[in-house]
Simulated assay, not measured.
Amino acid sequence: MNLNTNEDKTEQPTEHHIKKFQKKGKTRYSRELNSLLILISGMLGLWFLRDQIFVQFSQIMHNSFCFDKKTILLNEKNILFNLFLILKKILIIFFPFFLCLIITCVFPSILFSGIKFGFKSFQLNFKKINPLDGFKRIFSKKILIEFFKIVLKLLIITCIFLLYLKIFFNEIFLLNTKNIISASFCGWNFIVSFCFIIISGLIPVVLLDVIWQKWAYYKKIKMTRQEVKNDFKEQEGNPYVKMKIRQLMKLNLRKRMIIDVAKSDVVITNPIHYSVALKYDMYKMNAPKVVAKGVGDLAIKIQRVALKHKVPIISSPLLSRSLYRYSEIGHYIPGSLYKAVAEVLAWSWKVKKWRKEGGNFPQEPKDISIPSDLIYTGETKK
Rank of each mutant, 00 (worst) to 15 (best):
E236W: 03
K255C: 07
D260P: 06
K233H: 03
K250N: 08
D260F: 07
M243N: 13
L251Y: 02
Q247P: 04
E236Y: 05
N230G: 03
K263I: 12
K242S: 05
Q247T: 09
R254G: 12
Y240N: 14
A262W: 01
D265R: 01
K255N: 13
N252A: 13
D265Q: 06
E227T: 07
E234T: 02
V241Y: 02
G237F: 01
K233R: 11
M243Q: 14
E227R: 03
L248A: 10
I245A: 09
K250I: 03
M249W: 10
P239G: 06
D231R: 00
E227W: 07
M257R: 10
K255Q: 13
K244R: 14
F232R: 00
Q235D: 08
Q235F: 04
R256F: 07
E234C: 00
P239W: 02
K229C: 06
N238M: 00
K229W: 00
K244G: 12
Q247E: 13
P239L: 06
D265H: 04
K263V: 12
K242V: 05
V228C: 00
K229N: 06
D231N: 04
R254I: 14
Q226R: 07
R256P: 03
Q235Y: 08
Q247W: 03
Q247S: 11
D260I: 09
L251D: 08
A262S: 11
V241W: 02
F232I: 00
N230L: 01
G237N: 06
G237W: 01
V241F: 02
K242N: 08
S264M: 07
L248R: 12
R254C: 11
R256C: 07
G237M: 05
Q247A: 10
N238I: 01
I245R: 08
I259T: 15
D231P: 01
E236H: 04
I259C: 11
R246C: 13
Y240T: 13
V228S: 00
L251G: 04
K233L: 07
L251K: 04
E227A: 10
M257Y: 09
I258S: 12
N230E: 11
F232Y: 03
V261W: 06
Q235R: 07
I259M: 15
M257V: 12
A262H: 02
M243T: 13
M243K: 12
I259L: 15
I245L: 09
Q235W: 05
V241E: 10
I258A: 10
K233A: 05
L253F: 14
Y240Q: 15
K255M: 11
E227H: 06
L251R: 02
M249R: 13
M243E: 11
R256S: 15
M243I: 09
L251F: 01
K255R: 11
M249K: 13
M257E: 11
K255H: 08
Y240H: 14
L251A: 09
D265E: 09
K229L: 05
R256Q: 15
K229M: 06
V241I: 15
A262K: 03
K229P: 02
E234W: 00
D260G: 08
D265Y: 02
K263H: 14
M249F: 12
E234Y: 00
Q235G: 09
N238E: 03
F232S: 01
Q235V: 14
K229Q: 07
V241G: 04
Q226S: 13
K263A: 14
K255L: 09
V261F: 09
P239M: 05
S264E: 10
D231T: 01
M243C: 09
D231Q: 02
N252H: 11
N252P: 04
L248I: 12
L253W: 12
